[in-house]
Simulated scan of single mutants.
Amino acid sequence: MMKSIIDILIYAHDGRGLGHVSRSVAIGLAVRRLFPHLSVLLVTGCGATAELIGEGELDWIKLPSYKTKISCGKSCGDLGPSNIDDKVLGTVRAESLSDLVDVYKPKVILADHTPQGKHKELLRAVEGSTDSKWVLGVRAVVGDVDKVWSELSADTFTSRYSDILWYGDSSVTGSSELDKLSKHFQKIPFETGYVSRFKELRNIVTDVCTHKKLAGVVSIPWSGEGTSVLLEKVAEVLGGFDISEGIWKVYMNHRDPRVCGVKKSFECHPNVYLEQLGPSFLTDLANSRSAIIYGGYNSLTDVMGAGVPSVVLLRGMKDGEQEEHAAILSKSSSAIVNVFPEDEVTVEALRNSLEKCLKTKVEPSNMVLNGAANAARYLAELAGVRDANG
């Protein structure tokens, strides 16, 4: 029997958005909060991980980052900050992950999104690990992601994985996704509810201002083909509001060259502040009367957790996940006011939607948003904690 150095290792898929890492961070924070005696380590290539953790207590290891670019709604590999070829990087990271598992000997390993990892980088660790309990974590709506629904994915899960955590609420989405996962992986998933990093961080940062002094926030976590055109429209809309409505804060990655090119469009408006993506976004979100977000899992759970009326933009990815998920949630949460494809939304539609948001009061919802805590209890029990749900 191996002697474990850490109790729980969390692997987070990275490459484009922040949703996978954000969920993993939230769960890691929940484990540290609820079970402070347990040792937890997060491993990912996402460079924004420290900002996502914020003031929370969660240690992590940084792998060289993947980078993806979007072409015609489909993502493909690109050279990341290390300038290592995408496929070569997958091989290098696979060796690093295998070594980490071998050295730290975790009791439980939670892998996000696919059992095999991005570019199959978990396979070596999975095959070489004999005593760790492997757990797969899957978002509420997977979408048409071939790597999740592949034969390799099912075979890898069957060979070494013991459990699936489903980060959704079947009272909202229905059971079709659960049934599909059960059939593919031959295992009934454990339903955690939605994993909200906003909700988890509120347990840590208790002095968040909620007086709704800001007119709104805009979140552009990463840029794609249509981002520059969209930002021009957003600048025109926000600049058209009277300053008496309040300040608008636009959160972007200022290091992205595509974003830098449109910053001047905002700088001429005294009611608009430009902010670098970081932990202050959630504080400002809680203090806002409206928001413009993209329709990723992370952003949707943020606005639902904060109870902020929002305009949701869709990137038009081929997997269809955002479209399907936003359509489902808009029926259950009044926080989602309007939904538009990013390349079709007009200046007039954006302005009308924000005006509607500013007049909307979000009604309480029965949607389960404490998925991070529920996942943490499940993992703690697997790691040997008695009465983890007590």
Rank of each mutant, 00 (worst) to 15 (best):
G296M: 11
I336M: 07
L282P: 06
D284L: 08
Y297G: 02
A306I: 10
E321H: 11
D284M: 10
F340Q: 01
G295I: 00
V308C: 05
L277V: 15
Y297W: 10
G316N: 07
K318W: 10
E321Q: 13
L277C: 15
T283S: 12
V303F: 06
V303L: 11
G305D: 11
K331N: 12
A335F: 08
A326G: 03
F281E: 06
L282V: 09
R289S: 11
Y297Q: 05
A335V: 11
V308I: 14
K331C: 07
N338Q: 12
G316D: 06
E324F: 03
G305S: 15
D284H: 10
K318Q: 09
P309C: 13
D319G: 02
V312E: 03
I328L: 08
E324V: 06
S310I: 01
Y297T: 03
F340C: 01
L300S: 07
Y294Q: 00
V339Q: 05
N298R: 14
F340S: 01
L329R: 03
S330E: 06
G320C: 09
L313A: 04
A335N: 09
L300Q: 11
D302A: 07
F340V: 01
A327T: 13
P279G: 05
V311P: 02
Y294D: 00
I293C: 04
L300E: 08
D319I: 04
G307N: 14
H325F: 15
A291Q: 05
P309N: 14
S280Q: 14
G295L: 00
I292R: 04
V339K: 06
N298V: 11
R289G: 12
H325R: 15
L313N: 02
E324A: 10
N338V: 05
L285A: 13
A286Y: 08
Y297M: 04
G305M: 13
A286C: 14
I328F: 03
L300I: 12
S332F: 07
E324G: 05
G316F: 03
H325E: 15
Y294V: 00
G305I: 11
A326Q: 00
I328V: 08
